[in-house]
Simulated assay, not measured.
Amino acid sequence: MAKIRLGILGGGADSLIGILHRVAANMFDQFEITGGVFDVKHEKSLQFGEKLQLDKSRVYKDLDHLIITEKQLPEDKRIEAVSILTPNFLHFPMAKKLLENGFNVICEKPLTTTYEEAKILNELQQRSNVIFAVTYTYTGYPMIRQMKTMIANGDIGKIQKVDVQYYQGWINPLIHDKEKRSATWRLDPEKSGISCCIGDIGTHAFNMAEFVTGMKVENILADLNYLYEDNPMDIDGTVLLRFQDNIKGVLRASQIATGEENNFTVQIYGDKGGLKWEQENPNYLYLLKEDQPLQVIKPGHGFLSEFSLEGIKLPPGHPEGIFDSMGNIYYGVAMAIRDKSKFDGAYPKLNDGLRGMNFIEKTVSSHKKGNVWIEMKD
């Protein structure tokens, strides 16, 4: 079967996210990177395209040229899906144009910079016949998918407590220097949206809480931290969560957790047991029971769920990581493009990005109104 022709917007030069997406796209031999716009400067984009050994004519000056030129090509030659790896403020205009012109889309999170923009994309996608994925990367980990399956199967009983934490310390060298914190795009509302910490990593935790539990957050109460009066963007925060049946949860996110690298942990507790997972040790899922020893579940074994095993590429004992997780999402997108009735749940959909934007705005609103409870309505 011919590979799906993939275009990429952004992600050139030394972009970490670019490497992650390119490796993931190639992992299951489902995609072929065909062209794109890798940099705002065309010369740099061409240089990067040459490095990827792409046809020079498929490395475009901008998105408009990509769309016009590709649509003139025969259907079996043109780009079929486009990955958006640009700064946040470009997600909406790029995704909108791609949807309007019939391209499948894979978009980095957050989906847009406002909830209203996200709703526009949602309406466009519902009227189209294309696939739209939002790369909440961590949902692709086999042990996260095993966790989701075990919770759905009732292995830990009725959920009583949801605890998600995402701690980083990367912004410490910038936030305490007035010049530096004014210069980074992450702290510029025009480029990043109304939130830095919650918008960047808090949405991962929010999406994960809903993904593994199968429940929707119904109400939130937020307390955010900005540190300096001239800093318009949160860089730390705690959000109380209420799910259905008044099930309680807490979401903690920080970019000033000194010394932390990428400490994303998920802990779900039921009346019969608990499950714990740590992103920095992603091949271990811990099952806790009051009357049994701690159990450690690892990927690749035949007794695991089909959903977990779909994303396994190596025998047990061979560690899989962030590239594999993103690769599993790309594989889910590929299967959906080939047959839209299959692989539901194997990749985060546009609606997940829509809920993420709603969460960001409700969180900021809760904080600014004096740390009050706000209903999460779509």
Rank of each mutant, 00 (worst) to 15 (best):
M1F: 07
G12L: 07
G18A: 02
G18Y: 06
L20P: 03
F31C: 07
G49L: 02
G49Q: 04
Q53A: 14
L54K: 04
I67M: 07
E70D: 04
K71Y: 09
I79R: 12
V82D: 10
S83C: 08
L90T: 05
G102Y: 05
I106P: 01
E108F: 05
K109W: 11
P110R: 08
L111N: 02
K119Q: 14
I120N: 11
Q125H: 12
Q146E: 15
M147P: 06
A152F: 03
V162E: 06
Q165S: 13
I171L: 15
L174Q: 10
D177M: 01
D177Q: 08
R181S: 13
T184F: 15
L187Q: 11
D188E: 10
C197L: 04
I198L: 15
D200P: 00
F206C: 07
G214A: 04
D223Q: 14
Y226D: 07
G237A: 03
F243S: 13
L251W: 01
L251Y: 01
A253M: 11
F264R: 00
V266P: 02
V266W: 06
I268W: 05
G270E: 09
E280R: 14
N281R: 13
Y284S: 13
Y284H: 12
G302L: 12
E310D: 13
P315Y: 02
N328L: 02
I329H: 00
M335N: 09
L354G: 10
M357R: 09
M357I: 05
E361A: 02
T363H: 09
S365F: 14
N371G: 09
V372L: 14
W373L: 03
